[in-house]
Each structure stands twice: as C-alpha cells, then as structure tokens.
Design a protein around this nucleic acid. Structure first.
Lengths: 338, 338
DNA sequence: CTCCGCGCTGTAAACGGTTACATTCGGCAT
DNA sequence: ATGCCGAATGTAACCGTTTACAGCGCGGAG
C-alpha cells in the first residue's frame, strides 16, 4: 500500500498548530516562538513532510525553476552551456528544465507556450531560427534572456564571434599562410554568419598578398567537417591552412587530413572555434578561439534573475573571445613562396 | 503594463460557457458539441490562453515532467544520456528537469527531496554514491529508475561493463599483446569497478603467457588519463597496450603519448570505453567499447513510464556492449617475443 | 483597573485548474 | 401526455500551499 503523501495539514494537526504556523516555519517568515519552531520542524521531519512544489507555485506564483531551450543537446558545447547554468542555478536554489532537439519551429513554439506555471524565466539559445518570431506568442510576463541571438528589446548575451575569427586569420597570416580556407557553419546560424564575416573582413584587411576567401559548406558537426576537409584536400592549389567555424568540424577535418595522409600542422595548419574542453587533448592539440562557454550560461542566468533588467544598458552584453594558440596551427612557414 | 495572465475563467466568461466546458475542450475529455469545441478553442486562442501548469499539476496530481539526476553534466557521455532521454520525452509530451554537479551526498539528497509536486518520476545515475542510502528519504510514491547502479527493489538499467572489458582484453591479446596496462576509473564508481573486474578476469583467463594486471589510477577525466599515461610511459618494462576505463581518459592518454613521442598504435596500442561520438574522429580513431548511451537514457525513460514496472522480471535489464575496432589498437604485433 | 500594543497564532480566502455530480433539454417509446 | 435516457453543460468541491486579517494573551503605561 502506498502511503499517501503527507500534507501541511497533517503536520499541523500532529503538532497541534495551524497550517499557517507550519508554513511560516518552513518559510522562515513572520514571528514564530523558538519552541514552536523546533517542535514543528522536528515533527515535520519525523513525518517526512516535504512541501508540494506545485501547490506552492500556484500560491506564490513562482516556481523556482528556469527553463533552458537549446537547439540541441548533443556535444561538448551545449553540455558546457548547461553546466554553466546548472552550477549557478544550484547556488541559488533553482531548478532547471531543459529542452533541446528542436528541429522545427512549430515544435519549439509548442515548448515555449507550455511554460506558464512551469518556469519563472527562460534562457533561449536559438542561433538558427529567428528569435523574434519565436518569442512572439510566449505567455506575457515571462522574462527571457537570449544567448547568441538578439531580438527587439530582449535581454541577450552574445559572444564576439567576428573578433575571434579575425584573430584567427591574423594569426595564420602572421605565420606566413596566404591560402586560408574556411569551413562554414550552417546557413541561417547567426554565430556561423558572424564568424564568416570576421574571416572575410580579416582576409580583406590582410592585403593583396593573401588570397581571396575560399569557403566550404559545413554544419557544425564532425561529419560535415570531415567532408569539407575532403573537398579541401582535393582543391588545387591546395590551401595551407584551414579555419573551421567550430571545434567539432575541426575535429572532423583533422580526421580527414589524417586519412588523406596529410600531417597537421606540418602539411596543413588547422584552427577551430569554441575551445571545447577536449580541444587541448587532441593530437595535435587544437589551436582555437576560446569562448567562455560555461560563463555564457552563468551570465545568462544572472541576467535573467537581475531585477535591474529594465536598465537598457545592462540588457545586452558581449563576451570577449580570445585566441588560444596550440599545436595544430604550427610554427611559422619557412621558405614559403611568399 | 504587464497584462495579467488569462485564466480558464476568463475564457469561460468570454465564451459564455462554464469553466468545466473549457477544461473539457482543452483535455478532449467528455462529450462536447463540435460547435462549442471550435468556438471555445478559437476564443482561447485569441485571448492567448495557456493553462497554468502548476494549477493543473496540483489538481491532477501529475506534472508531466520527469527528473534526471546525474553525477555531473559535463562531457560527451552525460550529454548523450540527456539527449536520449530528451528525445523520447518530447515524443511523449514530457518535460525534463535535470540536475548535475552533485559533489556531495547532502546536496544530492536535498535535490531528491525537493521533487514532490515537481516530477512524476526520477531517473537517477549515481555510480559513485551508494544509491540505496540516497533514495532512502525520497518522498514516497515517486517512481525511480536507476542507471548503472542497483538498489534493493528499484528498477534499473545497467550496461555490461565487465563483458565489454573482457572483449577489449581478448582483442589485445589476440593482437599479440602480453603487457596490457589498465587506467582505472574513480574509486567507488561501480562502472569503473566492473570494468576493472572484467580486465582482471580476462587477463587471468588469457593464461600464463600474459602478464599480471598493471593498474594505474584515474578519475574518468582527460587530465587523469594524461597523467596516468605519463606514468605508463615511464614504466619498465613498458606495456605495449593500454586500456583506459573510459574514452575521456583514453583521449588524455593519447595526448600524453604524443607528447612523449610515442606513436599510437605503432608504439602503443590504445583502447577506450564508451564510444562517445567523437571517438571515431580522433586521430588515430579510437578502438573502444560501444555502449548505447542514448539508448540507456531512452530505455530508462521507457522503464520509468512502464505501468508494468511491478513485474519483477522487467525491472532490471542489462544492455549489451560491443567492441568497436578502429585504428588505435593497431594491427597484429609482428616479431613479438612471444 | 483599563487600555494599548506587541508578539504569536489561527481562520479562511485565494491561486487556477479538474472532475464528480447535478441539471437541462430533446427525442423517443409508451 | 408522460416518463426515460443520453448527450451537453453547469456547479462547486477539491488539490496543497501562502498570506491578509483577525484574535488572543500578556506586560506595561496611564
């Protein structure tokens, strides 16, 4: 027989007090005699009383949970974002409800609508889909913070994608490379677009000695990086350096270069973007752009909870990225035909 | 001005029906005239009515969310587990509340207690901490499924760790290796313990031509794999093969071997465990044991929701693992001193 | 001695849904 | 005409909290 769950009334009855008193004890609100306090607490403990979250939410109009909506859940990147949010959520006693794998827009909208009474706020990362149309029919009054996306009036945190990309190109150019290929991210992905923009502008800024942009399609997955790299291997004249728009594709490319018998970095320099945790453990270790991924999550949560959200200036912030030079970009090219 | 949220009563009033009718429309329950149905739905849509999740939960005694408790959230492995749960949760219209980073037991217990009225069930992965003591003061009546752990009477899904480990050792022995080192997982971690057990028993079974177990401590992290591998490099006589208890440590070891100038697999064969998605993209690609990670999550959820949970035989299941031979274990040793 | 104020506790009305039960209303058999 | 039945809908209790407000006892001021 399943023992029915103990309610606040049961505890009150057993302790010989009213439900209000028990509630006050649990919420440390209002004046309570010390003796009453400890007695109620002891009895509640003995009866294994645990407050019913839904009932409390209904009454207080506040769940203590925030929702996290990501394009997908797979891979080191998203895992880090979630972790960043999770650790700071726990510090504040908040719960996290996550949801990913939103291939299509309708599905995502359905999720967004189901939040009333479930979360106090939402952290949304939607680099692919246009955020402003998505959020249009979000229940009113739900605070939202966007990660790596912007939409009119919403708070957001973005990272300096273009700046990071420019740093990569400058690094490669400084090493003597002049034919630098780029493996793009998915179409419509705004991070990808910014990185591409940075790549192009830095190439242009590098002057006439450096070749035109040489771009290969990719989808931010290891597979797509692998395939793009195969295309690069067959390109004549072959580039001497490859800049992948994210680390996952760089990993795929590395694998393809190995299969093709090309050594990295001797025969081909390779740079990624994101600095996912395993980047430093690849062989060769991956030169990449560090983006403070966990920080992105952490600050997203902080912004969401910040009561000063109304202050316009604080609502948007951009996180700096910085180049991490490791082995895969190699040393200065010698005897180049420069 | 924030527009107050629309309640079911508002919709009922506007549509000229009772709240019961509106409720029935939304839940497709009870007989409703077609005309009423569409009219109410249209009005609700126009008013942007969304049912309040907490209120519904309170009334029906069922949230449609399940909780997922993991030891931590970082890395490809856990990310895959969550993804597996997430995709099948979405198919069933369920939400997911996750929580990780449970360094200590008290923290984890606190999380487990807070579930009343928040989730309908729990999927708990706790390879480090003893599950039975953890679950002792879980609110009564919350169904639980354990992943990679067992505790009296609880449903659980485990993977065949020992079998996978034995397959690895047999594979290496078949290739001609006789000095096979093992990088252990954390103490108290039951997956790690099982893998170690498999390693030892397979070595023993391999006969007298194969050396005694040679074990190095590790903690399932890339760093710890790196350090363990440094120790292995300095060991005399040096092993010819290394079996890391998980892929993350194998990645760390690979990095260390590269730094030390050892080629994998020519100078040192290397095998991991888990078959995380990037394993195939490492250079060399990693020989490892495939465990159906996403499946683990998927089946965990299925078991949790299975009304037949009472049937004793269905409550525990073990997932098969299987060896995936790639490049890192190399080809047969030639001219060994066998 | 009365009254006031304060500290502590109790009462009961929300919160926003669901649902058992009651009610209404045609239609149909008697 | 009467009664009955089932389909469609309404009424109101209930889910388990929080909290505004009321009440009560008691000590000190007047």
């Amino acid at each position: 027989m399943i023992v029915g769950n103990v309610t606040i009334r049961d505890v009150a009855a057993r302790a010989g007090v009213s439900v209000a008193t028990v509630s006050r004890v649990f919420n440390r609100k209002g004046p309570i005699r010390a003796a009453t306090y400890t007695r109620v607490l002891a009895i509640a403990e003995r009866m294994r009383y645990v407050p019913h979250a839904a009932a409390r939410s209904l009454s207080t109009r506040s769940t203590s949970t925030v929702g996290v909506v990501l394009p997908e859940l797979h891979g080191e990147f998203f895992s880090e974002v979630i972790r960043g949010i999770d650790v700071s959520a726990r510090k504040r006693g908040l719960h996290l409800i996550v949801s990913g794998s939103h291939s299509d827009e309708a599905e995502m909208k359905a999720v967004l609508r189901a939040v009333r009474g479930r979360v106090d706020g939402l952290i949304v990362m939607s680099p692919d889909l246009d955020a402003s149309t998505l959020l249009v029919d979000l229940p009113a009054g739900v605070p939202v913070v966007l990660l790596n996306a912007t939409a009119g009036g919403r708070s957001s945190i973005t990272i300096d994608n273009a700046g990071g990309a420019r740093a990569v190109v400058r690094h490669l150019v400084a090493l003597g490379h002049s034919r630098i290929a780029f493996i793009c991210g998915p179409d419509n992905n705004c991070d990808a677009a910014e990185r591409l923009r940075g790549y192009r502008s830095a190439l242009r800024a590098a002057g006439p000695l450096v070749d035109e942009p040489l771009e290969f399609p990719g989808k931010f997955t290891e597979e797509s990086g692998y395939e793009a790299a195969q295309g690069i291997v067959g390109t004549k004249p072959r580039p001497t350096a490859v800049f992948a728009a994210n680390d996952a594709m760089a990993i795929g490319a590395l694998s393809a270069f190995n299969s093709a018998g090309l050594r990295v970095p001797e025969d081909m320099a390779l740079v990624g973007f994101d600095d996912i945790p395993i980047a430093r453990f690849l062989s060769p270790s991956l030169t990449t752009v560090n983006v403070p991924i966990a920080d992105l999550g952490r600050r997203g949560l902080a912004l969401l909870l910040d009561p000063n959200q109304a202050r316009e200036d604080a609502r948007r912030s951009t996180l700096k990225t910085n180049l991490i030079v490791r082995q895969s970009s190699g040393r200065e090219l010698r005897g180049g035909h420069r």
